[in-house]
Amino acid sequence: EQLARLKREFNENRYLTERRRQQLSSELGLNEAQIKIWFQNERA
Results as ranks from 00 to 15, higher is better:
20 R>Y: 09
5 R>P: 00
44 A>R: 11
39 F>Y: 05
7 K>Q: 10
21 R>P: 02
18 E>V: 15
18 E>Q: 14
31 N>C: 09
38 W>Y: 06
33 A>L: 14
21 R>H: 03
2 Q>S: 08
4 A>Q: 11
4 A>P: 03
32 E>I: 09
35 I>Q: 00
4 A>V: 05
35 I>G: 00
29 G>K: 04
10 F>T: 02
6 L>D: 00
5 R>E: 04
10 F>L: 03
16 L>D: 11
40 Q>V: 07
20 R>V: 07
25 S>G: 06
7 K>P: 01
35 I>M: 03
19 R>D: 13
32 E>P: 11
28 L>G: 00
23 Q>V: 11
20 R>N: 04
12 E>T: 10
7 K>D: 02
23 Q>A: 11
21 R>L: 15
13 N>G: 06
3 L>G: 01
15 Y>L: 08
37 I>L: 11
28 L>Q: 01
42 E>W: 14
7 K>I: 10
12 E>V: 09
4 A>L: 11
17 T>Y: 04
26 S>G: 07
39 F>R: 00
11 N>E: 14
30 L>K: 00
9 E>F: 08
6 L>W: 00
17 T>G: 06
25 S>D: 00
24 L>N: 01
30 L>C: 09
22 Q>Y: 08
16 L>H: 02
14 R>P: 15
30 L>Y: 02
37 I>H: 10
3 L>M: 08
36 K>R: 13
25 S>C: 09
15 Y>H: 12
43 R>T: 06
8 R>A: 13
30 L>P: 01
40 Q>C: 08
31 N>I: 06
33 A>G: 08
26 S>Y: 14
12 E>I: 12
39 F>I: 01
24 L>Q: 00
12 E>F: 09
19 R>A: 15
11 N>H: 12
41 N>Y: 09
14 R>G: 08
3 L>I: 13
43 R>Y: 11
1 E>H: 08
39 F>A: 00
4 A>N: 08
22 Q>N: 06
22 Q>A: 13
42 E>K: 05
33 A>W: 15
8 R>M: 11
14 R>M: 10
18 E>L: 12
39 F>C: 03
31 N>M: 08
17 T>C: 11
24 L>F: 02
16 L>K: 02
25 S>P: 01
40 Q>K: 10
37 I>E: 13
19 R>F: 12
1 E>P: 06
24 L>R: 00
23 Q>F: 10
34 Q>M: 14
2 Q>D: 05
22 Q>L: 12
29 G>T: 02
23 Q>T: 10
19 R>M: 12
7 K>Y: 08
24 L>H: 01
40 Q>N: 08
2 Q>H: 09
